[in-house]
């Protein structure tokens, strides 16, 4: 009885929604969910994202967390991420290999020890860059099976890159590379 009532309510609700509104709801629903390990945006980061129709362009909004035990301090942060699948090939009906992906991300870390806008205690332009945000660039690849996918990324940050460029002799390129791996589920 309960089930019938629920189905009736659901049907009448969806019927009563104008078609346009339905479309809007559909467009607002995320295209995939993401869970990532490392990559400079958290021990674990998770969130949702939207894709282009062919899934060659994928965006993510991720919340990241580092426990004190692993990171020395507890870190909470958010990340906006843009990935472009540059080279991709279908193996068969179910399997697709993303040979090369690349992208950019911006990360914001929460906490009063970081600043985005220069605090009042400093004169104008005292420190050149905000400590609460970093930009990352990355390249990697992945594998998709039906609606699930896994990926890896080799990335670096704006600050790492600045250190490297200013110290070509002393800093090995490998030292500025960080690794991230993750999984996506496409709805």
């Amino acid at each position: 009885m309960k089930r019938i009532l629920l189905s009736y309510l659901l049907i009448s609700f969806s019927v009563s929604l104008p078609a346009q509104q339905n479309k809007l709801v559909k467009a607002l629903l995320p295209d995939h969910g993401t869970l990532q390990f490392a990559g400079g945006i958290g021990f674990l980061s998770g969130g949702i994202g939207y894709d282009s129709k062919n899934k060659r362009i994928q965006t993510d909004l991720l919340y990241g967390y580092v426990p004190e035990k692993l990171g020395g301090v507890t870190i909470h942060c958010i990340t906006g991420k843009f990935t472009w699948i540059a080279i991709s090939g279908r193996m068969n009906n179910n399997i697709r290999v993303d040979w090369l992906s690349t992208g950019i991300l911006i990360n914001y870390v929460f906490g009063k020890q970081y600043f985005f806008l220069s605090p009042d205690k400093y004169p104008l332009k005292y420190y050149g860059v905000p400590t609460a945000a970093h930009v990352g660039i990355f390249a990697g690849g992945g594998l998709r099976y039906k609606k699930a996918g896994i990926y890896y990324e080799l990335g670096t940050t704006d600050r790492d890159l600045a250190s490297y460029v200013g110290n070509i002799k002393a800093i090995p390129f490998f030292d500025i590379v960080n690794i991230g791996v993750g999984a996506k589920y496409f709805f």
Binding site: G40, F43, V73, V109, G141, L154, F174, V177, I179, V181
Partner: peptide, 22 residues
């Protein structure tokens, strides 16, 4: 390739630039 990348170095695992891992 992915397995190799995962294993090649713990030094390249950075959880966050602001982590404190001396």
């Amino acid at each position: 390739v992915m397995t190799a990348i995962l294993l090649f170095s713990c030094k390249n695992i950075m959880f966050h630039p602001e982590e404190v891992r001396p």
